[in-house]
């Protein structure tokens, strides 16, 4: 083994890496928020049973779930380019991840709604609650309990998937690492450091989610 490790360049660039880690968090969280909103809409549309719009929701959901995320990113990159729409690398990543998150979350939410027995609505209404009160106080809390864990997983996926950004030229953590690694030729060292940063980010998300769940679900 005649390879010598050089960690100094990595240490020197550590602030850049950590900074890029924040960019990763930012884009992953934004894509998650967009995914939750869009996923909720898709789930409600799919459950509405209105023929004219369900096909759209179903198409989105199945495409997001049955093709590689990288392909989805490419689509928002040079796929849209074919129609003269040129998104910035940041927007490509954000749109691609949001599209994917929304597809998976829509199914999660649908499962969550289905898990609440319909008699719960009847029981709440029979106590004189309005439809809104029933949803806010009875249904949503129960749905949240069911979808909480899958949502945490999706957030982790959002972070892991955001690394695909390096293939469309966006410099979040993975992209920045590739940039620094190719400049210094310390590929292994840089990517190892980055792997550790990703690991820590994922653990923070899972830990945070667990803490939050203790507060949220007392029953």
């Amino acid at each position: 083994m005649d390879y010598t490790f050089h960690w100094r360049p990595v240490f020197r660039k550590l602030p850049d890496l950590l900074q890029a880690g924040l960019v990763t968090m930012e884009v992953a969280i934004l894509a998650m928020l967009a995914g939750v909103v869009l996923g909720l809409i898709l789930a409600l549309v799919r459950m509405s049973g209105m023929r004219s719009i369900t096909w759209f929701a179903v198409g989105w959901i199945e495409l997001a779930r049955n093709t590689p995320a990288l392909l989805q990113l490419f689509f928002f990159g040079f796929g849209l380019g074919a129609f003269g729409i040129h998104l910035s690398p940041f927007l490509i990543v954000l749109c691609g991840l949001s599209f994917n998150n929304a597809g998976y979350l829509a199914e999660t939410f649908r499962g969550g709604f289905n898990a609440v027995p319909p008699t719960q609505v009847k029981a709440a209404r029979s106590l004189g609650m309005t439809a809104t009160q029933t949803y806010l106080r009875i249904i949503i809390p129960q749905v949240l309990r069911v979808v909480y864990h899958p949502m945490t997983n999706q957030m982790v996926w959002s972070v892991l998937m955001s690394s695909l950004a390096m293939l469309v030229g966006y410099r979040e953590l993975a992209g920045e690492t590739q940039f620094l690694a190719s400049k210094t030729y310390r590929i292994f060292e840089f990517f190892l450091a980055t792997a550790i940063i990703y690991y820590v980010i994922v653990k923070l998300i899972i830990g945070g989610s667990r803490l939050l769940s203790w507060r949220l679900f007392r029953y």
């Binding site: 998937m161 690394s163 292994f188 792997a195 690991y199 994922v202 653990k203």
Partner: peptide, 20 residues
């Protein structure tokens, strides 16, 4: 499960030459 697959791939691909 906690490190992006793409990073794992690059890491291992560059690790093998190191160990010969």
């Amino acid at each position: 499960r906690s490190v992006p697959l793409i990073i794992q791939l690059i890491l291992f691909y560059n690790f093998f030459p190191i160990i010969g």
